[in-house]
Design a protein around this nucleic acid. Sequence first.
DNA 1: GTCTATACTCTGATAGAC
DNA 2: GTCTATCAGAGTATAGAC
Lengths: 205, 205
Amino acid sequence: MDGQTALDTDAARPRVNNRRAGILNAAAYRFRRQGYAATTMRDIASDAGMLAGSLYYHFKSKTALLIAVHEEGVRRIADAVDSAVIAADPADPWKRLEAALAAHLNSLLDGGDYAQVVIRDLPADEPELRATLIKLRDDYEDRFRALVDALPLSNKQDAGWLRLILLGAANWSKTWYRPDGTPPAEIAAHFIRIVKNGETPGSTT
Amino acid sequence: MDGQTALDTDAARPRVNNRRAGILNAAAYRFRRQGYAATTMRDIASDAGMLAGSLYYHFKSKTALLIAVHEEGVRRIADAVDSAVIAADPADPWKRLEAALAAHLNSLLDGGDYAQVVIRDLPADEPELRATLIKLRDDYEDRFRALVDALPLSNKQDAGWLRLILLGAANWSKTWYRPDGTPPAEIAAHFIRIVKNGETPGSTT
DNA sequence: GTCTATACTCTGATAGAC
DNA sequence: GTCTATCAGAGTATAGAC
């Protein structure tokens, strides 16, 4: 039906990515539901429609698979947050932060498997892997640093604590969030309202 | 040497607890550092000075071991928090909450292995185990419900959100806390200050 | 390039000697 | 109460057929 073979320049790798994406999807699906340690290469291979050994053609190891899923997850959350911030009112720093937080929460709570894997506790038994994963997350969270720094706070020192409270409360929300309860955007609004009223006593009255 | 056999009423179990405690300590130590899945019964047995098979005389399974560690961990955190609340000013609900949060943070961050195991992500692959563990934690967190309900909030609806923000931020702190940084009690004070100023605009000025 | 077959190690758990 | 011996299964990874 198509002329695939005609596209086979060695610089491009169109078909390989299909396979890679399928494996990555399967890995994300399993890691999210079972956790990294409890997921077997046979599980992932089965979901991807191949046998365990075949995975090693595409990924060097189970660890490499986890890192790839994390990278993709962070990328997706970051894209969602960036889009939300761009769409938000440039003149209102609090609204911009709230938009970012809402997008962050939405990704974690209702997002796909990739986003959820990022938020799970990191495997503590492999220090090198752990360092790689933490670096990925920290780079992402830097954009929240910029957002809270832009806030008109009465005490500039509070920016750091504000970031930690907001991000911490958000990341922990996966333990109590219910799909039929308060939606992510509303959760973000509540969070922001409570910390905001404390920081800008003049602007709300 | 001793008259142990004379104490052998079936209601008491004095000698068994010694061995049990040693095994539990070893399990907590390993679970904290390696996580549940990556810890083997052989690891625990080795630390406890026995062989793997011998563990099964004291505990039915690896799962039973994890539950026992969780129970002990929750009990220790709860005791620390209760003591702190009792020692706090009965007339100042905010101070009481801050004292509880400080004790909670201190247990998680500088506490022993038991407390740290409780805060780690739960094994997702065993639904029944997960439910048991979540119930343990929820029962503990109920005391924070009482503490925030006692707060003189301008909007009583905020009590629930306040609890979620504080506990979430606290539980997430293990990912950024550094032993040589801000101590737990100060972290608690910062957290409380930021959310408090937002909720009692009249009482601080 | 992709998959089958398989190697080898380690896991949680059991049975029975002591 | 602890140990020895062992099991059946699952783990990651490789070699080589196709």
